[in-house]
């Protein structure tokens, strides 16, 4: 009889232990990053000339806006968590004007900083390997001899009686911009999403204000590309707002 009790007792202990491990021990889990697009203090709308030309006359419209966010790291108290194949093509032509990245199976830690690069690292930029959202046959690819566009903005500038096409395709390895965001309080896997603002206007109006009429397109001119890259280094910021409904016009 004793043996039976010992067996039952052991089983109960093992079950209780497992339950503790399952529910109370620090678990890995997911971390969600949410990116909310706006244009200065206005909401992002496509195909309408709503936004004043930062450095000159006229108003501009946006037909397409896409950007590679890559090499995402979470800086923790014990470790750095590096997301594998971290190449995320952010686009906002959806109803919520939001782009969401869910990092799953992030090991438990208290993470204080998020690191995100805008662009594609040199090694991946010169490779044909389709990793993450990198696609050599995609809209963001130039030819394999040139690499990827890191950021794509296409639209138009409406001035008094004229319409000017706007094409900003910015790439080249030197224009990779690494950003570090110190979180107001640490997060652990399973915490609420981390919200970022994506201010499209920063591309034309941050480090330098750009007159779209004098610079309506940027592609392969290295100086122009680097000018826009200095600006898009200010594209992302940690969101301070509590609510995340699209801003009103």
């Amino acid at each position: 009889m004793n043996k039976v009790w010992i067996a039952i007792f052991t089983v109960i202990l093992i079950l209780a232990g497992s339950a503790y491990m399952a529910f109370y021990y620090h678990q890995s889990g997911s971390v969600i990053l949410e990116f909310h697009a706006r244009v200065g203090d206005k909401s992002l709308e496509f195909g309408q000339p709503l936004y004043p030309n930062p450095g000159g006359k006229g108003r501009f419209s946006i037909r397409a806006f896409q950007v590679y966010l890559s090499d995402i790291h979470l800086v923790g108290s014990k470790q750095d968590y590096q997301v594998s194949d971290s190449y995320h093509l952010a686009r906002f032509d959806n109803e919520t004007r939001r782009y969401r990245i869910e990092l799953s199976d992030v090991p438990y830690d208290e993470y204080s900083d998020v690191m995100i690069s805008i662009g594609v690292d040199e090694e991946a930029n010169s490779s044909l390997m389709p990793r993450g959202d990198l696609d050599p046959n995609g809209r963001m690819a130039w030819s394999w001899e040139v690499g990827y566009k890191f950021l794509l903005f296409e639209g138009g500038l409406e001035q008094e009686n004229s319409r000017l096409p706007l094409v900003y395709h910015v790439g080249f390895s030197e224009n990779l911009k690494k950003q570090r965001f110190n979180l107001p309080k640490t997060i652990t896997p399973g915490s609420a999403p981390i919200h970022f603002d994506v201010d499209v206007l920063a591309l034309f109006d941050s480090h330098q204000s750009i007159d779209m009429a004098t610079l309506p397109s940027v592609k392969f001119d290295r100086n122009d590309a680097s000018l826009l890259a200095e600006n898009y280094a200010n594209l992302l910021s940690l969101s301070v707002k509590e609510s995340h409904n699209p801003v009103e016009n």
């Binding site: 130039w142 030819s143 001899e145 395709h169 397109s217 592609k219 392969f220 001119d221 290295r222 122009d224």
Partner: peptide, 8 residues
């Protein structure tokens, strides 16, 4: 394979 860029 090239988008023309007269400036460049």
């Amino acid at each position: 394979m090239a988008h023309p860029d007269a400036k460049a």
